[in-house]
Computed example of a mutant assay.
Amino acid sequence: MRLKSFHAKSMSEAMRMVRQTLGDDAIIVATREEDGGGVRVTAAVEDDDLLMAQARTAQPTRTARPVVVVEEEPEIDVGEVVADVLHRHGVPAALAEQLIDAAAGLDTDDPALALGAALDSMFTFSPLQDRRGGNKPLILVGPPGSGKTLIVAKLAAQAVFRKRSVGVITTDTVRAGGMEQLAAFTRLMKIKLATVEDPDALAGAFEVSRGADVVLVDTAGRNPYNREDMADLKALLSAGVAEPILVLPAGLDAMEAADIAQSFKALGVRRMLITRLDMARRLGSLLGTAHRSRMAFCNASVSSKVAEGLTPLNPVAFARLMMPAEDKAARNRPKPAAPAKTKAVRSSSRTIP
Results as ranks from 00 to 15, higher is better:
Leu3Ala: 05
Ser5Tyr: 00
Ala8Phe: 01
Lys9Ala: 11
Ser10Gly: 08
Ser12Tyr: 03
Thr21Asp: 13
Leu22His: 05
Ile28Pro: 01
Glu33Trp: 05
Gly36Gln: 14
Glu46Lys: 12
Leu51Val: 11
Ala55His: 10
Pro60Leu: 12
Ala64Ser: 07
Ala64Gln: 08
Arg65Gly: 11
Val70Thr: 10
Glu72Asp: 12
Glu73Val: 08
Pro74Gly: 07
Glu75Thr: 10
Ile76Lys: 08
His89Thr: 00
Gln98Thr: 09
Leu99Phe: 02
Ala103Lys: 05
Gly105His: 04
Asp107Arg: 12
Asp110Trp: 12
Ala112Ser: 13
Leu113Gln: 14
Leu115Arg: 06
Leu115Gln: 03
Asp120Lys: 07
Phe123Gln: 02
Thr124Ala: 13
Pro127Glu: 01
Gln129Leu: 13
Gln129Ala: 15
Arg131Ser: 04
Arg132Trp: 07
Gly134Met: 12
Asn135Val: 00
Pro137Gln: 12
Leu138Ala: 06
Ile139Pro: 02
Val141Thr: 10
Gly142Phe: 04
Gly145Phe: 09
Gly147Lys: 10
Val152Trp: 00
Ala159Thr: 04
Val166Gly: 04
Val168Arg: 03
Ile169His: 02
Thr170Lys: 05
Thr171Phe: 02
Thr173Met: 07
Val174Asn: 08
Arg175Ser: 04
Gly178Cys: 08
Glu180His: 01
Thr186Ser: 03
Met189Asp: 06
Lys192Arg: 09
Asp198Cys: 01
Pro199His: 14
Asp200Tyr: 14
Ala203Thr: 02
Val217Tyr: 01
Asp218Glu: 04
Pro224Asn: 14
Arg227Gly: 05
Val241Thr: 13
Val247Met: 03
Ala250Asp: 03
Ala254Glu: 07
Asp259Cys: 04
Ile260His: 01
Lys265Val: 14
Leu267Ala: 14
Arg270Trp: 04
Met272Leu: 15
Ile274Arg: 03
Arg276Trp: 04
Leu277Asn: 01
Asp278Gly: 15
Arg281Ser: 09
Thr289Met: 11
Ser293Leu: 10
Ser293His: 14
Met295Gly: 08
Phe297Lys: 06
Ala300Lys: 00
Lys305Gln: 14
Ala307Lys: 11
Ala307Glu: 15
Asn314Val: 05
Ala317Leu: 08
Met323Trp: 02
Ala329Leu: 12
Ala330Asp: 13
Pro336Ser: 13
Ala338Cys: 05
Ala338Pro: 11
Lys341Ile: 03
Lys343Ile: 10
Ala344Glu: 10
Arg346Lys: 15
Ile352Trp: 06
